[in-house]
Design a protein around this nucleic acid. Structure first.
Lengths: 259, 259
DNA sequence: ACAAACACACTGGTACTACCAGTTTACTGT
DNA sequence: ACAGTAAACTGGTAGTACCAGTGTGTTTGT
């Protein structure tokens, strides 16, 4: 049987949960300013009329979402709105602490996007090809004067137009559910890669290869090019990470996302 | 000056935090399966040797990240990395009316299971191999006297043990979210295939090939065999469907699922 | 007078107990 | 056989006591 609606609007919810929401609201409306200190647990719990236990659980929840940071003996501080971007999915939050799963993701992505390119080259309809062509032109058009953010968006749109042309709903839905939650980070990584002219040239080359293979109805080439593309990105990210680990101890992701 | 690292690699951290990581790992490596129930708090806290309090805080953190869902009086369940595809529906409902997307699914499955077999042959640990061997024996053991339902279950368990051995969380969760919602129907289809001795022999042959390739550490063979297996199933189903369409107008799926 | 050492008052972190509140299960009485 | 209830789960809150870092005073040694 179908279970009752999973997302009731305005749950009565548990106390710790409603506490979480109250604190979130306080952060959002500026009562608790980013960078500012959160009142101590004992203080808050008394003022809100709840046990320190429940209050702590609410704080843990906020901490899990990256809204506050806590240091033993000092207190908690509001981290600000930037982490709010990561709110989009479990994958996103998780891979900040387990960077390895980014490579696992790229491994799967190589498979799926490769196949998507193959299928696109094989069965794309005219309207699909038009969309791809449009996205491709947007990607190639302005070699300068565009902000990296926009370029990254176009990059994503290009890939999207391709796997949507595969006409395989399962494939589309799977890729969508994999990529969409991490869109922000993908944007960040692409932005990072585009900074390096060598990387950019190679990426553009791959994009061209994929595009022409698809419009030229060359499934095998398209798949090969798409897989090479993802593999290339994967190894470049790996390279960058190693590099940064050599320079300082912070991982590349912090600064990519941090800004 | 950049503020101190937000995600220091391997902090000694607090207990509840390390608990969070441990649980995350359990989810990532598939010990805690998406959709599966998390042991009760009292149980877990005792087994891990920590207070229920700390454990609860760890769970709250996971809950804040959307990795688990908790219901009063029932317990917690793992939600998975990938949003459960179509749990309430689109796919499941859709494909009853449009059987074609079953083939789309098998297309994606061929990719993913092929790669999973490859990775399993490459990086399976002993415990993984043991699980695979166990599932394989259960699948081969009794050539008769078992009901088709049970055989189908073993079949699924075998495939599951393989992709769980891939040690790629993204791959595992993707396949899980693809297959689990349709498990009923897959069971039905396999049950159907097993009725035909010719099909059964070929399927068993494929299973053996996959198994030996994995335990023999032959990634390429494993992938080839796994893909051939899915492809074979796909074509056989297609065959059956055509057959039944010739016999009467009702598609095979209605009766398979209908029961 | 200066600086190191200490004591104390914070902060969050863990533990344990007791109890409340939903769910499920199993037993009971009709 | 069935309905109804009691008990045994489940998670949720509360409260206390104590441990462990952190900062800030005061005291103490030179």
């Amino acid at each position: 049987m179908v279970e009752p609606a999973r997302t009731a609007p305005s749950k009565p919810a548990s106390l710790s949960e409603s506490l979480t929401r109250r604190l979130e609201d306080l952060i959002l409306d500026g009562t608790l300013k980013p960078g500012g200190k959160v009142p101590s647990e004992r203080q808050l719990s008394e003022r809100l009329g709840v046990s320190r236990n429940s209050l702590r659980e609410a704080l843990k929840m906020l901490r899990g979402r990256g809204l506050i940071e806590t240091r033993h003996g000092q207190g908690s501080v509001v981290t600000g709105l930037v982490p709010r971007l990561h709110q989009e999915g479990p994958l996103m939050l998780l891979y900040q602490e387990h960077p390895r799963i980014l490579y696992d993701l790229l491994e799967v992505r190589e498979l799926l996007e490769g196949r998507a390119a193959f299928l696109a080259a094989e069965r794309a309809r005219e309207i699909d090809l038009n969309r791809i062509a449009h996205a491709f032109r947007a990607l190639e058009a302005p070699p300068h004067d565009t902000d990296p953010e926009e370029v990254a968006r176009c990059d994503h749109a290009f890939h999207q137009s391709i796997y949507e042309a595969s006409n395989n709903p399962v494939l589309i839905h799977t890729l969508e559910s994999l990529l969409q939650p991490m869109r922000q980070s993908v944007v960040a990584s692409v932005k990072n890669l585009y900074h390096r002219t060598a990387s950019k040239k190679q990426i553009d080359r791959h994009h061209r290869q994929i595009y022409h293979a698809i419009v030229g109805r060359q499934p095998e080439w398209a798949e090969k090019a798409a897989r090479a593309h993802i593999r290339d990105i994967r190894s470049r990210l790996q390279e960058i990470e190693k590099e940064e680990q050599r320079l300082d101890r912070s991982t590349s992701w912090e600064r990519m996302i941090g800004s």
